[in-house]
Design a protein around this nucleic acid. Sequence first.
DNA 1: CATGAATGAGAGTTCATTCAT
DNA 2: CATGAATGAACTCTCATTCAT
Lengths: 206, 206, 206, 206
Amino acid sequence: MVSTKRLSARPARESGSERRAELLAIAGELFASRGFLATTVRDIADAAGILSGSLYHHFDSKESMVDEILRDFLDTQRRTNERVLREASDPRAAIIELIRQSFAAMQHHQAAIAIFQNESKYLAQFERFGYLRQAANEFERTWTRVLQDGQRSGAFRADLNVKLAYRFIRDMVWTTVHWYNPRGKLTSNVIADQYIKILCDGIVVP
Amino acid sequence: MVSTKRLSARPARESGSERRAELLAIAGELFASRGFLATTVRDIADAAGILSGSLYHHFDSKESMVDEILRDFLDTQRRTNERVLREASDPRAAIIELIRQSFAAMQHHQAAIAIFQNESKYLAQFERFGYLRQAANEFERTWTRVLQDGQRSGAFRADLNVKLAYRFIRDMVWTTVHWYNPRGKLTSNVIADQYIKILCDGIVVP
Amino acid sequence: MVSTKRLSARPARESGSERRAELLAIAGELFASRGFLATTVRDIADAAGILSGSLYHHFDSKESMVDEILRDFLDTQRRTNERVLREASDPRAAIIELIRQSFAAMQHHQAAIAIFQNESKYLAQFERFGYLRQAANEFERTWTRVLQDGQRSGAFRADLNVKLAYRFIRDMVWTTVHWYNPRGKLTSNVIADQYIKILCDGIVVP
Amino acid sequence: MVSTKRLSARPARESGSERRAELLAIAGELFASRGFLATTVRDIADAAGILSGSLYHHFDSKESMVDEILRDFLDTQRRTNERVLREASDPRAAIIELIRQSFAAMQHHQAAIAIFQNESKYLAQFERFGYLRQAANEFERTWTRVLQDGQRSGAFRADLNVKLAYRFIRDMVWTTVHWYNPRGKLTSNVIADQYIKILCDGIVVP
DNA sequence: CATGAATGAGAGTTCATTCAT
DNA sequence: CATGAATGAACTCTCATTCAT
């Protein structure tokens, strides 16, 4: 039988143990609800039922925690976006599905999304978090391309400022995270449908 | 006749001296761009060319500064909203003008708006800033009423979830503050026009 | 009359105020007697009669304190060495005067010398303290040159290993700092005389 | 006949297993090169390829490690000194042999010597390490006696301050440990010869 | 014997705030 | 009005040590 013993002498800080995941979830909730700076490592430790020093058995620093949370989310989202683009039949369907998937992400990544929204500006000033800007740029390029394709194919209004429309949609989707309640009456599906309708057809009766 | 001049040389802490206004402007920019917590009183003092202790000749605390910034903005905005509602001919015109005025506010209150957006959640946990929640509720009531009136009068789609539509519009307007550049090519008027068009008629060609 | 008001907004951390000098003296004594690592900033603050946080009004960090102490000492010592070499008539006189000056330095720089001796190895691993290695090399070059000159001129034994002789002398001088007591019976002059005699003529009766 | 084997499987904490010796050697190197305080138990464990907690199967504490290292060295050195004194024909030969043996010790006890040199002051403040001061005193008594005997017998200069001469010799010998490289060109024998020559006859040509 | 999760004390540092000058 | 020295609480992080598995 093959030994399962670890070869490395200090695995905990790097591998994906269950405890780590639990702690990251706890930290994520706090970062999202109180803000990164306003959340102390003692807050996190208290919420986890351990002492603050014990967190450093699992993570190098508070920054490492938020780093891991954000990377996880961005990786997932990037993969989802790529899949949507591969499978969409036309620009209109692509935009709608991108939006729907973004709302869907709120169910499992609400904390990460909120952190990405609220703390990117602060964190991106540190070299370590340079990838946040890169990710934002990549998203922008993706969405903008779809909007342009749709405009060329006649699916979207010609008088649309694509850059502004992108920002409009992006903000519309992500700011929802601030008030979305996964246990509330408004499911992410309902919100997505309403927003897509407003976006596509406007609020005014023609 | 009783003089309106102050009897004693009251400390500047309460009067509206020019220096105060300057300092508030400096503090506002920093709060808006770096975040309230990430901005130290020394940052503010440095930017003003004085020592941090000297700020306390003008303000009681860091909180007092943000408090004054936010109250100024909310008072102005409230008065503007009231005027718009008095003068608007119908719900559609009212909504459009409310949006246009919100965008217009960005020219003189960008910092305050950003702070209101980013820090309300954090600040509202302190009793002193309870008025932030009240102001938010008041705005919601105002806008929601207009949307409902418009729905009843047949101006807006009947299948609109008014609460969601309000949030949609609110977020759409306020998040702009994060990327709006008062010295950039996109004037607040252009942004307002584009957003109103999307909002009213959607992005899809009918 | 010319104003003496400072132009800079934050002078204390950089200029040479009296308080700074006092605090540095206190810190130096502690670093020398307990070791740099074993001395906490709270120890220093306690000895100075203030709180630990108050130290940071004057210094950026514990490292900055030891940095300033060491730079002061090395600068002084470098200048003294240069003067001795300029004024010495021959290598034998130069070596004797270098040693005498080194012992003399103990009266005003005992703490700095002890720190330089004890903590150089630890501190030099940080980039900031790279100059410690440079200073050591410079001292070595100076002393070695004098020893070689003396050997060539026939003043010193020909069978002397110059590199070893340098280390011998250097260690002989600097280790004294560990037990030298400026208020004890053995003045630095007495020690210097004895050591120079041993060094020049040996302990054995010819 | 009573077995000398231990009756129970006593924990390795007290026995002299090979693993213990290995670990002590590793710890000794680190204590010597980085300093006792600057060496963490994790450093030691990492160097040994185990986790820090596992060290506590072998030793009670970090202090126990350094304690054992120092006791080993001091015992050996004490026995060597006693043998030298028994066998030496006269004070001059005794001093020379003491020095030679001290240099010889560097080959197997370099780490211990360095630790004794660097950390005695710090460690001796704890009761447990009171024996460090005693050992130092004992060494001083031994060497001083030999120097006095030699002075009386006319072997050493009469104008020698014995106390100072002792310190001179002691420091001369022990500080070598800071730069001695057992794999370098300068063998401990060469260094001993040079230093003994300087000590006995001085550096100046008579 | 070793692991890995945890403890608990204490380290260096930050920062809003105060106040005599 | 401004300075500059100080406070005091809180912060992130370190580390020797313990112990169930």
